[in-house]
């Protein structure tokens, strides 16, 4: 018998009132993988994380963590998580909070090593109320690691960190992956996914739009975007190499895989007032992935 996957999500659907946040999402993550959930703000990443942890009840679908339900997995200490809006209690010391959480798990990360791994050296005696944003973030990471859980779920773990803190954090996460932990982290930084993950899952509008190795997904998103002012009736979708078109008022943004060919065609077709060409941001890339209407995720599904 094979062991169940670290995370098995089937048909997950999350609604807030009339808003559909997660739309029938399927995702299976075997033990030992380091996976980046990549997507713009509002793509549904946090909803997925919250549903996996049992913090919200999905409208449909199921979540399995090492073959258990979310509630059972959390109770059994199978999962450690760093939430985007997780918090620390006031009027407490860091060491007390860490001790409380460590003792609640069946297994415990050795304290000396945990302090070094999470980078909270010298903070244990500190009052929680006196921590900086980056320090809080590292303490929350320490809480996620405290029970040495097999599955780690980190929702935008580096959002409050400066560049230096972010790099140190990536090193930590790579170390965790090397130690055999399954690490799933949500991010909207492509470079972060690239630096840490061995698999990237791009989420947009609550669905998986790309799933593959970092190299595979990056190849998809290294296009360029061309912005200019255009009349609303100007036809752009059929131009060479265009993968997506977005309009904001009079400004048009065209995603392209070959800026040269697209620009030539645009010039032949008329003027290009307020022209701007840049490398695609993740938002643009995700836009192009959606608007080209991928019904099947690109890349190898593993």
């Amino acid at each position: 018998m094979t062991s169940p996957p670290a995370l098995d999500i089937t048909g997950l659907t999350v609604r807030y009132g009339d808003t559909l946040a997660v739309d029938g999402l399927d995702l299976t993550i075997p033990s030992g993988q380091t996976v980046a959930l990549l997507g713009a703000n509002g793509a549904g990443k946090s909803s997925v994380v919250n549903a996996v942890l049992g913090l919200l009840n999905p409208a449909a679908g199921s979540v399995g963590i090492l073959g258990r339900t979310p509630a059972d997995a959390v109770r059994a200490g199978c999962v450690g998580a760093m939430l985007q809006h997780g918090g620390l209690p006031s009027e407490a010391r860091v060491g007390e909070v860490l001790d409380l959480v460590r003792r609640s798990f069946p297994t415990r990360w050795p304290l000396d090593d945990l302090v070094v791994t999470a980078g909270i050296d010298g903070l244990l005696e500190r009052s929680v109320d006196a921590l900086s944003g980056g320090q809080r973030q590292r303490v929350l990471l320490a809480l996620a690691l405290a029970g040495a859980p097999p599955l780690l779920l980190l929702d935008e773990p580096t959002s409050a960190m400066d560049v230096e803190g972010r790099r140190a954090f990536w090193t930590t996460m790579r170390g965790l992956a090397d130690a055999g932990h399954t690490v799933v982290f949500a991010t909207h930084h492509l470079d972060e996914a690239d630096a840490v993950a061995d698999r990237v899952v791009v989420v947009a509008a609550g669905r998986v739009v790309a799933d593959g190795s970092t190299a595979q997904v990056k190849a998809r998103v290294t296009g360029r975007t061309i912005s200019f002012t255009a009349a609303p009736d100007r036809r752009l979708e059929s131009l060479p190499a265009v993968t997506g078109v977005a309009r904001h008022g009079g400004t048009v943004t065209v995603a392209t895989t070959d800026a040269d060919a697209t620009l030539r065609a645009l010039l032949a077709d008329g003027g290009l007032p307020d022209l701007e060409v840049r490398g695609a941001t993740l938002e643009d890339a995700v836009l192009s992935l959606i608007s080209t209407g991928h019904t099947h995720p690109i890349g190898a599904v593993r």
């Binding site: 959390v74 109770r75 918090g87 609640s104 798990f105 809480l143």
Partner: peptide
């Protein structure tokens, strides 16, 4: 209410503490 606002209740909820 303060523990809810700070996110500590949520944090506790994802530990094995029932």
């Amino acid at each position: 209410s303060f523990d809810r606002a700070s996110g500590w209740l949520r944090q506790l909820r994802i530990t094995p503490v029932p």
